[in-house]
Amino acid sequence: MAKGIWVFAEQREGQIKKVTYELLSEGRKIADQLGEELCAVLLGKGVAGLASSLGEYGADKVYVAESDALENYTTDGYTNVVADLVKQYEPGALLLGCTVTGRDLAAQVAQRLETGLMTDCTGMAIEDGQLVFTRPIYAGKAMVKAACPEARPVMATIRPNTFAAVPNAREAEIITVTPNTGDIRQVIKDIVRQISERPELTEADIIVSGGRGMKGPENFKLLEELADVLGAAVGASRAAVDAGWIPHTYQVGQTGKTVSPVLYIACGISGAIQHLAGMSSSKCIVAINKDEEANIFKVADYGIVGDLFEVVPLLTEELKKMLA
């Protein structure tokens, strides 16, 4: 009898990803409604110390699997261990963040267990006794509600920033398991990190984004200054990326990243449908554009029709004073 809600606790370099706490917070509500337990599964090397923080967000139990082979994420290593644990403990549901790692792992585990997986979900509820997930399709132009009626566990990846991370302290029972990492066919030769003090685009609460109106790569400095005052990430539209002003990793939209921050500030972005697809689930949208006919104003909560080269530095100054 498959029971219990499991959350994959994603960590990189000893830091738990924020989306993990978001999933535990919402998973706690679901577990309480079902009268089942909420468990986290934490893999890595030297990560046992992170387990208690998972209890602070509602986990009843934390399964900790440590191994040298789990220090860096590998598709095979993590799939082998997570799939084994699921086979052993038979949870009813397994939730992961829709991150690069979560997406990679979820597909492999789902196939190994021959179960269904709903990805990039933005809603989760119990309806008629089963877990139902809402997910945007066609880049947010439509939504589908879906369920996995028979196969277990039900698996889903949830878009970061969908749920609030709410502390719900309890002392989690820590269960140390000995992982069998098995044959790992992916050999990590090198990891290159871009050194950035700014938050990851998909996890950021605030994003300052620039488009064609930025006119050149050198002007992104204006956005960086505004971003740093707000502790925000910097993003870009496809037009700016295709012009070669900023790398593709910054692109927000249908062929870039999908984001749902609390605040999205679009500077010199016209609001093409492909861009809106990637950011229209933001809670508050601000548009700064000199073209008052720009599409972006149709979705913006606040708009300033004006020259961004004038408005953005002034806004940076205002916010600096306000937040000082």
Partner: peptide, 30 residues
């Protein structure tokens, strides 16, 4: 394994307010 239960179209976002005034004034108001 996964069954679609229902489809819907998202509520369109409503246009909000355009903040009037000169750049400095508008930035302060924003």
């Amino acid at each position: 394994k996964v069954k679609a239960l229902s489809y819907s179209l998202p509520e369109p976002r409503k246009a909000g307010k355009i903040i009037p005034g000169e750049a400095a004034e508008a930035a302060r108001e924003l």
